[in-house]
C-alpha cells in the first residue's frame, strides 16, 4: 500500500518538475514549483520523515515560492523557454 501511494505521488512529482521547467510563464513556474514542493513534502511524510516534510512545507511550498514570486515581480514574467 505504501509503495502505491509512493509511486503515485512520485509520478506527480516528476510531472510537476517537468511542467515547472517547461512552462513559458514564470509565474506559472512559481506555482508549479510550489506544487512540486508540496508533493515532495507529501512524499516525505509518507516515508515517515515528518520533520523534513514540515520543513519543506514551510520552506519549499511557503517561503521559497514567495521569494520566487517576489523575484518574478521584480523581473519579467515571460520567457522563451
Amino acid at each position: 500500500m505504501h509503495w502505491l501511494i509512493d509511486l503515485i505521488v512520485l509520478t506527480f512529482v516528476i510531472f510537476c518538475a517537468i511542467a515547472a521547467i517547461s512552462v513559458k510563464d514564470l509565474l506559472g513556474t512559481a506555482i508549479l514549483f510550489g506544487a512540486y514542493s508540496f508533493m515532495m513534502c507529501l512524499l516525505w511524510a509518507v516515508m515517515g520523515a515528518v520533520d523534513v516534510a514540515f520543513t519543506e512545507a514551510s520552506v519549499g511550498a511557503g517561503v521559497s515560492t514567495v521569494f520566487f514570486v517576489a523575484a518574478v515581480f521584480r523581473t519579467s514574467r515571460r520567457t522563451k523557454d
Binding site: 515547472a20 514549483f33 515532495m40 516515508m47 520566487f68 520567457t79 523557454d81
Partner: peptide
C-alpha cells in the same frame, strides 16, 4: 535552459531530489 530563473528551478529540483534520495535511505 536559457532563462536564469528556470535554471534556478532546475537547481532546486536537483537539490530536492537528492533530499528525497536521502530520506528514502532512512525509510
Amino acid at each position: 535552459k536559457n532563462n536564469l530563473i528556470k535554471k534556478l528551478v532546475g537547481m532546486n529540483i536537483f537539490q530536492t531530489a537528492i533530499i528525497l534520495f536521502y530520506v528514502s535511505i532512512g525509510y
